[in-house]
């Protein structure tokens, strides 16, 4: 085909679509941007016009204020939007609330930019929808065969078992405020845990957004302001940075837990002084990544942010034409 690089290319600002004249998840301010999801490294403030799902726009407004961009346009999942000659559709990516794949159609070719995604069920957002395409641009956060995540419900069962074994201690779960925290809450509810869950203040605005979007979180209360040795036997959810810090001292002999795909590897858990690692990730693991590539069979695969090397090797072994794109500026929200 006449070259996917006419439709999509890598620039210092991030992925750029010349015929549509817009960027996707740019890391610097640009005139026109499509934003796949609300995590701060993908959704930055200061762009001219932003196209995203209504949920992602709400997340950006909550994080950066209503003036996060000069102009914003909402596109629901499946709704077709035209940008010059390029037809843009946002499809569910299964990553967090409002997360989308950007599907670009131009001159008979289809390119899908996955954003961050996972293939597993998540009670807080719709499932990833595979879209047949010529070019698939995939994330690679957990692109190593060591990352094959267990069932998230088993991990939550571990947490509940520990709570029953140590009723005199507070379980302090580190979870990213957008997505992971609400998923953990919903998984706890699904496992039958109906008690009040205690929240670090940084969770409040995202929890409210999820609830406004119809995600039921059950009884929540602030953990902040609690007295010394507070909340024995309770579960507290906080940003990862807070669980081993000063903030954690108010609780009763806390057990630091951390919900992240990185918890698959012991050394990572130990470095962070985590005593109860919970392998729960909002990214695709090795099997999900490679099975997605096999399912979509794109003519070309571009791999962005993460461990590209092993996926390139997999592609070579499986006769898939693949290239690594180095897009600077994306961080992993779990870190």
């Amino acid at each position: 085909m006449a070259g996917f690089r006419q439709l999509l290319r890598n620039t210092p600002e991030g992925l750029y679509c010349p015929p549509g004249d817009f960027h996707i998840d740019p890391v610097r301010p640009v005139p026109r941007a499509i934003i796949t999801h609300g995590h701060s490294d993908h959704a930055r403030s200061g762009h001219g016009a932003v196209l995203a799902t209504p949920q992602t726009l709400a997340i950006m407004a909550a994080r950066y204020g209503a003036d996060f961009a000069e102009k914003s346009e909402a596109a629901s999942y499946g709704q077709r939007v035209t940008r010059n000659a390029v037809e843009v559709t946002l499809m569910p990516a299964g990553h967090v609330l409002g997360s989308a794949q950007a599907v670009l159609r131009w001159k008979g070719m289809t390119a899908v930019i996955s954003g961050d995604y996972k293939r597993r069920r998540d009670p807080t957002c719709p499932l990833f929808e595979p879209v047949p395409c010529n070019l698939f641009v995939s994330e690679a956060t957990f692109g190593l065969p060591v990352f094959r995540f267990p069932d998230a419900s088993d991990e939550v069962a571990k947490l509940l078992k520990s709570v029953s074994l140590f009723p005199e201690r507070t379980h302090l779960v580190g979870a990213y405020a957008l997505g992971k925290a609400q998923r953990i809450i919903c998984l706890l509810r699904e496992a039958g845990y109906q008690k009040t869950l205690y929240m670090h203040g940084a969770m409040d605005s995202m929890n409210a957004l999820y609830q406004a979007d119809g995600v039921s979180l059950g009884p929540l209360a602030p953990a902040t302001g609690a007295a010394k040795n507070a909340l024995p036997g309770e579960i507290v959810i906080a940003p990862p940075s807070a669980i081993a810090d000063k903030w954690a001292r108010r609780f009763a002999d806390p057990i630091p837990a951390f919900a992240s795909g990185w918890m698959m590897v012991r050394a990572r858990a130990r470095q962070r002084h985590v005593e109860l690692p919970l392998v729960v990730s909002d990214h695709a693991d090795w099997d999900e990544l490679t099975e997605t590539f096999t399912e979509l069979k794109p003519e070309e695969l571009w791999i962005t942010h993460g461990s590209e090397e092993a996926l390139l090797r997999w592609a070579a072994l499986n006769d898939v034409s693949a290239t690594a794109l180095e897009i600077a500026g994306y961080e992993d929200e779990d870190e």
């Binding site: 190593l144 065969p145 060591v146 990352f147 094959r148 698959m264 590897v265 012991r266 050394a267 461990s307 090397e309 092993a310 090797r313 997999w314």
Partner: peptide, 19 residues
């Protein structure tokens, strides 16, 4: 792929268990 994995994990038994 095994070498890349071992390099990341740093422990042989753990690498084999995971991959």
């Amino acid at each position: 792929l095994f070498a890349l994995s071992y390099d990341f994990v740093g422990d042989l038994a753990e690498t084999v268990a995971l991959v």
